[in-house]
Design a protein around this nucleic acid. Structure first.
Lengths: 328, 328
DNA sequence: TCAAAAGTGTTATCCTTACACCCATGT
DNA sequence: ACATGGGTGTAAGGATAACACTTTTGA
C-alpha cells in the first residue's frame, strides 16, 4: 500500500488598513493547547467527501476558523515538495504518516474588519518581507542582506559563485540593477537557498541557525511550515495581477478617494507612484466615476469620492492599472 | 475513514512544427487493451513515496511514457472539482474509489521530434480549439458558435439572459467586441457551461448530446477526463506569458530566422502580426543576435539566421515580446 | 522575367514622463 | 497666514501603428 496523501488548503487573505497591506494570520495550537511561537496562514484539511471543490472547502473552513466571509478568491499554486511541509496540528488524525500537499489560495477583502476569532490577527506584509517595501526609497535592511548574500555567493567557486552573484544582483537590485517589485518569490527562495531564512535550517532538521539579530530582522519573521513561501507567491501574484486586471478595487470600500486608491496600489506594489500620472492613466481606463460627494477627513482640502464602475467589466475587456513610478 | 485522495499529473507538452503549435497527445488503453476513442494528455499518478517533488515525478513518467526528456516546465493549476474528473485506466489500483485531483503542467520543447512511443502523437491546437485561430482573420466556425450561444442565452430569463449574452459577447468577440486572444479558458468554460462541449453531457452522465456535425466541428474535439480544460489553461498561460517573459525561445531551435520566430509567436497567440513592427520591437529588446549565416530554404530570398541571447536573462530583468497586431 | 519571401525608410499619433503650479480646507 | 493634502496644464521624448518600397534568391 502506498503512502497516503492529505491535501491542505491555505489562504492568504489580504486587506488594506490605514494605507497598509495586511494579511490575516493565525497562531495554531498544538495538542496541549499551547499557541505556536510562529504565525501561520489560516489553513485546514481538504475533505474530499464533504466538499465538491477546493474553493468551497476553503470558504467553509475560513468562515469557521476566522468568522468571516471571503469575496474574491483565486488559486495560487500547489506545493508538494517533501521536506518543506511540516505537518501541523489541525490537519486531522491521518496527517502524521501522510504526505501533505498544500494548495494555496489568494483572497481579497475590502476591509480589515476585526475578526473576533481567537488566535487570529491582521499582520503587515513587512513583518514577513521587510525588504519588499520601497515606498520610502531603498529600504535600509537591504544593506545587511547584501553583505550576507555576497558572502554566500563567495562561499562557492567558479561558475557557481558567478551564478549566485548574478541571481542575487537581479533579485535584490544590487550594484544599481533596477528593482523589480514583482519577483517576490524569487527573492524569498534565494534567501531560503542561501540559508538566511530561518525556515531553511528548520527544514534541514537543524536547530535555529545562528544569525545576528540584525540579519534576522532584515530577512523577516519566519512562519509555520511553508506558509511564508505561499505568502511570497501571493504577493507576487497580486503585484503582477494589479497591472493587467482591475483587482485593487476588490480591496477598496464602496466609495474612496483617488489618494486612498493610490495608497492601496502603493501598499501592494511596494513602490511610490507619481500622483498625476497615476490619475491620468486611471482616467483613461474609465474604471472609476466621481460621486460628487467629498471626504472631509483628509487633513487638507477635502477630496472627491469615487466609485468603481464594476459594470465596465462586462462591457469590454479591461486591463489593470499602470504603475507610473515616482523616481526618487 | 475518509475517502482517499489520488493525485494525477498531466502534462501539456508544446512544440512548433511547420509553423503550427502542436501538443503531445496519447490514446490511453483500457484494461482490455483497447485504445480510447478520445485523445488525452500524457498523465500518470503521483507516488508520494517514489518522488520528492511533483516536477521530478512528472519528468520521470513523461520520459517513460513518451520516451523523451522535458526542458522548460511550469505548473499550471490544480483541478479538484468532483464530477469533472473521470478516473481513467493507468492511475493505479486505488483510483476507482478515490477522489482524483489533477495537477496540470506546461512544458515547452524546441522541436516536435517523433516520439516512437505507441499511442502517442503530435496534434495541432486547432483540433481541440478551432475557434482560437485568428491568423487568417475571424474563423468561420464562429458563426456557428454565435448562433448556439445566443440560443443558450435566450433560454434563460431576465438578468441571467443578459448576463449570459454579455459574457458570450466578450469571450467570443460578438457584435464587434474586440478579440482577446488570452481568454482561452473563459471561452472553453463558457462552451462547457452552455452544454455545447461534449464533455458537459458526459460529466452529467448523459449520453452524447445530440448536436449537429457542424456545431461539433466548431466546438472542437473533446478529450478524456478534464484534459481539454487543462489544455485550455495551458494555452491561456502561454499566450499571456509570451508577452512578459521571453518564453518563445524555448520553442525555437538554436538558430532560426526572424520569420520563423514570428510564425511561432503567431501560431501560439493565434493572431497575425505586423512584420516590421514585430522586428522593430524585437530589436529593442536586444534578445536576439544575427549569426551572419543565411538560411537558403525559405523559398524566396535567403533569410539571416539569429540566435537567442540567453545570457541576457542573467544580465537584467527582461520582458517578453509585444504583439503588434496586423489589422486585417 | 517573375513569383516569393526577406528586409528597410518614414511619418503621424498616442502614451509616458517630467516638470511646476493653483485650490480648498483646518488650525 | 500657513501647513496640508487635493487637483490641474503643458511640453519633450519615445513607443506604436500605418504607410509603401527595395533586395535577393529559385523556378
Amino acid at each position: 500500500m502506498s503512502q497516503s496523501i492529505v491535501i491542505g488548503l491555505s489562504a492568504v487573505i489580504v486587506a488594506i488598513r490605514d494605507g497598509e497591506a495586511m494579511v490575516l494570520t493565525v497562531r495554531p495550537r498544538d495538542a496541549a493547547g499551547r499557541a505556536s511561537e510562529l504565525a501561520g496562514l489560516p489553513f485546514g484539511p481538504f475533505d474530499p467527501q464533504a466538499h465538491r471543490t477546493f474553493e468551497l472547502a476553503l470558504r467553509a473552513f475560513v468562515t469557521q476558523q476566522t468568522r468571516f466571509e471571503l469575496g474574491y478568491v483565486e488559486q495560487l499554486y500547489t506545493f508538494g515538495d517533501r521536506g518543506r511541509e511540516a505537518p501541523v496540528a489541525n490537519m486531522g488524525p491521518d496527517a502524521a504518516a501522510a504526505r501533505v500537499v498544500s494548495v494555496g489560495y489568494l483572497a481579497l477583502t475590502p476591509a480589515a474588519v476585526e475578526t473576533h476569532a481567537p488566535d487570529t490577527e491582521w499582520s503587515s506584509w513587512s513583518r514577513f518581507f521587510p525588504y519588499e517595501d520601497w515606498r520610502g526609497g531603498r529600504p535600509r535592511v537591504l544593506a545587511v542582506l547584501e553583505t550576507a548574500l555576497r558572502r554566500w555567493a563567495c562561499a562557492s567557486r567558479g561558475a557557481e559563485a558567478a551564478n549566485r552573484l548574478a541571481r542575487a544582483r537581479l533579485a535584490f537590485a544590487l550594484d544599481d540593477a533596477p528593482w523589480n517589485e514583482e519577483r517576490v518569490l524569487e527573492r524569498y527562495e534565494l534567501l531560503y537557498e542561501a540559508g538566511l531564512a530561518p525556515e531553511a535550517a528548520r527544514d534541514r532538521g537543524e536547530s535555529c541557525g545562528a544569525v545576528s539579530e540584525e540579519l534576522a530582522a532584515a530577512v523577516g519573521e519566519p512562519m509555520i511550515s511553508d506558509h511564508r513561501r505561499i505568502l511570497a507567491t501571493a504577493l507576487q501574484r497580486l503585484r503582477g495581477k494589479l497591472k493587467y486586471r482591475p483587482v485593487v478595487f476588490e480591496l477598496m470600500p464602496e466609495a474612496f478617494t483617488l489618494s486612498a486608491l493610490q495608497r492601496a496600489v502603493e501598499a501592494i506594489s511596494g513602490v511610490p507612484l507619481h500622483k498625476q500620472n497615476f490619475r491620468r492613466a486611471l482616467e483613461r481606463t474609465a474604471l472609476v466615476e466621481g460621486l460628487g460627494r467629498l471626504d472631509a477627513d483628509t487633513g487638507g482640502r477635502p477630496a472627491e469620492l469615487f466609485r468603481f464602475r464594476r459594470e465596465m467589466l462586462s462591457a469590454r475587456p479591461v486591463s489593470g492599472l499602470s504603475l507610473p513610478l515616482l523616481r526618487d
